[in-house]
Computed example of a mutant assay.
Amino acid sequence: MPDVADTDGLTVGQVSTRVGVTVRALHHWDEIGLARPSLRTPAGYRLYTAADLERLHRIVVYRELGLGLDRIRAVLDDSAEDVPAALRAQRSQIAERIDRLQQLSAGLDRMIDAHERGLLLTAEQQAAILGPQWNPDWPSEARRRYGDTTQWRQYAERSASRSPEEWQAIADLVAGLDGDLAKAMDAGVTPGSPEADQLVELHREIFSSYFPITRQMQVCLGRRFEADPEFAAHYDSIRPGLATWFRQLIDAHAVAHGIDPDTATWQ
């Protein structure tokens, strides 16, 4: 605490500079009786004494520790107040806030990492969850292509809070859908049929785990499943021609909902 000797007769402005609080705060503390200046000039202006300044320094310390003004008044003025107990209680609250802030900091680190990497899984976890055909470079490639889109931001935000177990659950749903598509194709399910529409809706529901997918966006995905060599190879490895057949299912379902597949856009 600074030396307060020989400081009787300080003005509000001088005290504001010495203590490091605003003049407005000093006026407020004066009004509520927390810290009133003890002296007055002949013209009626209030002046602070050394004792007043010492009290103000103590108020500032307690306020920085997080005590409210009423509690500070009790600590300073109430002889029955258990000051160590009050400070211990405040220390406990500060410890809780520190813990919360550390959690928020860790969450921010994960969010930043997710926006930059996309998938917060090690290469070993990716192989175990997504299969040996998965290329761990794909998330980085996707970041380069789509990092400035709304969908990438949505994907990153979900990825930041998703555990390996949750990714495994999504991978299992995708694998199950692939199996259902193969069975439906073998059974001769045709585009526009109730069975086909159910599969298309299931696909949109599962893939919306990454980011929300509209029916128009699903049409665009269907085109890519058929045209992109990597996607087409995946679906056609399940059943020859599955990529084209599935795209037809998606298009027929879109038409039933008033969407022209030929003009559908990513929106």
Rank of each mutant, 00 (worst) to 15 (best):
S92C: 08
S105V: 06
L120I: 00
Q126H: 03
W152I: 06
D137Y: 09
V61W: 11
A51N: 04
S140K: 11
S140T: 13
D148N: 14
D137M: 13
S159A: 13
E124F: 02
A106Q: 05
D109H: 09
L65Y: 00
R153S: 13
G68Y: 09
R55L: 09
G66N: 08
R63K: 12
H57C: 03
R110K: 12
L108Y: 03
P139M: 01
L65C: 02
A51C: 01
T49Y: 10
E54T: 09
R153N: 10
D148H: 15
R158L: 14
T49N: 08
G107K: 06
L56I: 06
D148L: 14
I59Q: 07
P84F: 00
Q90P: 02
L119I: 04
T149Q: 12
D148F: 12
A95D: 15
R110L: 13
S140E: 11
W134R: 09
D82I: 05
L69Y: 02
S159V: 05
Q90Y: 05
R145D: 05
D70L: 01
Q151A: 12
W138F: 11
P132A: 14
E64M: 07
R117T: 09
G68F: 01
R100G: 08
W134H: 14
D109Q: 08
L119A: 00
L76I: 12
R58G: 00
M111P: 06
Y146N: 12
L67F: 07
I59N: 03
Y48D: 10
T150H: 15
A160N: 02
R55N: 09
Q102W: 00
Q93R: 15
S92W: 12
L101W: 04
Q133W: 13
I94K: 04
I94A: 13
A51L: 01
V60S: 11
A106H: 00
W152N: 09
A128Y: 08
E81N: 03
G131E: 05
I112G: 06
W152R: 00
I59E: 04
A128R: 14
D109F: 01
Q133C: 08
L65I: 03
L56H: 01
L130G: 00
E141Q: 10
R143G: 00
S105P: 06
G68R: 03
A95Q: 12
L120E: 11
A85T: 10
D113A: 15
A86T: 05
A114P: 10
Q93A: 15
R143C: 08
A142L: 12
Q154I: 02
L56Y: 06
E54S: 12
Y146P: 07
A127R: 15
R110H: 04
P132Y: 12
L69H: 07
D148P: 10
L101V: 10
E116G: 11
N135V: 05
A156V: 03
T150L: 13
Y155L: 12
I112R: 15
R91V: 03
Q154V: 07
D77T: 14
Q93S: 13
A95S: 12
R143L: 01
I98H: 02
E64S: 13
V61Y: 10
E157M: 13
A89V: 00
